[in-house]
Design a binder for these strands. Structure first.
Lengths: 334, 334
DNA sequence: TCGTTGTGTCGAACCGATTCGACAACGGGC
DNA sequence: GCCCGTTGTCGAATCGGTTCGACACAACGA
């Protein structure tokens, strides 16, 4: 591989001159610049990333921490992947992916060895063990998902309480008097996925406020338990006229279940949910829903992170930002 | 951050001694080693990855090239992600993820700048534009997916013709005399996804050999076209008693479609397919199928790649390996 | 004419590791 | 008592960039 020294030799200048020509940090005569450019072209020179990182202590890489829990519905995580890598690239950063079960250890390893300039944590739990490692790291980090203690952290998440109220209000306005909520599986609560109870509690409160009868039930994440739980829930609430499904795995199989029960939407039952438009497009999901906007969340998180990286001195306060619920009417309510 | 110099000072030895203690490439007295270990602990020292990469020209990072085609069924790609990152980690490597639309440019950029020690290409097409860049790169690479020209490349893929024959044989043995195949969407063929025609042609040939009536139809990748195409295909072949579904997006919604038509499996129709056990678990997919083994393919690819990285001189011939079809009977045939 | 300012380039130091050759101290064989 | 091989440690060079200070030279105003 050609080094900057080879380029310098070919162009008949010093290495520093080539470096300045590359960075534009000092003026270079037109003639010299041309000779350098020619040499770079003909030698097919690209600066060595390791050497540059060593000197500048900037790797132009962001670390992304995913957690694929055993019982997770994997496609949900995927929705964040593409927006994050794409916005990172557009800002000049690459993405190093970590999927280790022990996320805290992975974070420390990568941060300590200086492989990344910043860290992105997805699917953050209420009492996430990775946060201690993140706070100890010298690189900045951003979270997608709300932990219990946000002190000093930049956090982006959907406004789940607002989403819940939006959906309950929507059903209430249509005159529904008994609503059934399918929540994420029990293990999500146990793991501390705060979005689950933030959504559920707000929905319950809003229903109570409207005097609407309300019941919440755990969904499941794997077949055939999903089918069974849905049927059990529907059997248990024969008078409910509306269903709120807050669980990707359940909503993905709901059309088949309703079909098998001879229930038609929205005539027999109004159904609303919470998912992204991409998710709706991949699966057969024609339900009115609050948009979960993983693309927007991913983009915001990356932008915030790179801003912190590029302005290290500044101590602007950490930001906890909830993005607003936006209802997409797909005609599944009446 | 502590450097190796800080450790050396704290332990009262030279930097080289610390380095040798770390790598074990020279003998170190027990006493010195203890002092060094203590210093490392108390200073919380981790070697700087950039510096190490610069000196050793080994980054311990593998580049992974994914392509999310506009109309792709995303979860399919995801199945490879986890096995690849996990086997890479177990061999000491991290994964740098690239999702750019222009994969060839991304590959060149990352390879030229020496950010990675090797490259993994997923979903390789018959005439994949990334292959020229891969061949030009100084790092070794492996493919998952079979291109037209495999010269000098290590390739891993499922034995699709074998899979097709296995399924056709299975149905033929049960006495079926008319089989209907749902293939990947037309754009997969156009893009050069050779697995599509390798499977289809072998299935057709095997059916002909058995004297079984056979028809193939393009599936779709997005709703509501998937539903419509499935219904159209089923309408068009009223006498087919067996269905082979070679398309993740179609098979994911097939249960609902069959339900809505009042078709029960396997009594009215035998259904077989080709997917992974993880895919079957996430979705409601109770079909007898050939296992597509993304975990095995991912693991093999990573192992081959790291082997090439660690034995650079050796010129053992490139390997094109097809893994055998394995039928998993889930009782959806009769 | 002299000092000043600005432009373009260079040499050297540095980032944080690895590794080669040198060498001191030590014990064993003669 | 001398030579030799082993063991443990060190200093210096190196990887490939970036950046600071110095400086030669030209143009300028006084």
């Amino acid at each position: 591989m050609a080094t900057i020294g080879d380029v310098a030799k070919a162009a008949g200048v010093s290495r520093s001159t080539v470096s300045y020509a590359l960075s534009g940090k000092r003026t270079i005569s037109l003639d010299t610049r041309r000779r350098i450019d020619d040499a770079i072209k003909s030698l097919n020179f690209t600066p060595n990333a390791g050497a540059r990182a060593l000197k500048t202590s900037q790797t132009m890489v962001l670390g992304l921490l995913l957690q694929f829990h055993e019982d997770e519905f994997a496609p949900a995580m995927l929705q964040y992947l593409l927006p994050i890598t794409e916005s990172a690239r557009s800002l000049g950063y690459d993405i190093l992916m970590m999927t280790e079960a022990d996320g805290a250890a992975a974070l420390t390893r990568v941060a300590q060895s200086g492989m990344v300039d910043g860290l992105i944590l997805l699917d953050v739990a209420h009492d996430d063990p990775r946060l201690a490692s993140l706070r100890a790291a010298r690189q900045p980090g951003v979270l997608v998902g709300l932990p219990g203690d946000t002190d000093g952290l930049d956090v982006f998440d959907l406004d789940f309480p607002d989403a819940a109220r939006t959906l309950v209000d929507h059903l209430h306005e249509l005159g529904h008097e008994e609503i059934c909520l399918i929540t994420p599986p029990r293990h999500v609560y146990e793991r501390g996925g705060s979005y689950a109870w933030r959504f559920r509690d707000a929905a319950m409160e809003q229903a109570t406020k409207h005097g609407v009868k309300f019941s919440a039930h755990y969904g499941e994440s794997r077949q055939p338990a999903i089918d069974q739980s849905l049927n059990r829930i529907l059997d248990a609430s024969p008078n409910a006229t509306a269903l709120i499904v807050h669980n990707d795995a359940s909503v993905a199989v709901l059309p088949a279940v309703l079909h098998s029960r001879g229930v038609s939407v929205p005539d027999d039952l109004s159904v609303v949910s919470l998912y992204s438009k991409d998710f709706a497009r991949s699966f057969s999901l024609p339900y009115t829903a609050v948009e979960s906007s993983p693309d927007k969340l991913g983009r915001l998180a990356v932008e915030r992170l790179t801003h912190r990286i590029q302005n290290p001195g500044t101590t602007d306060p950490s930001e906890v930002r909830f993005i607003a619920a936006e209802l997409v009417d797909r005609g599944s309510t009446r």
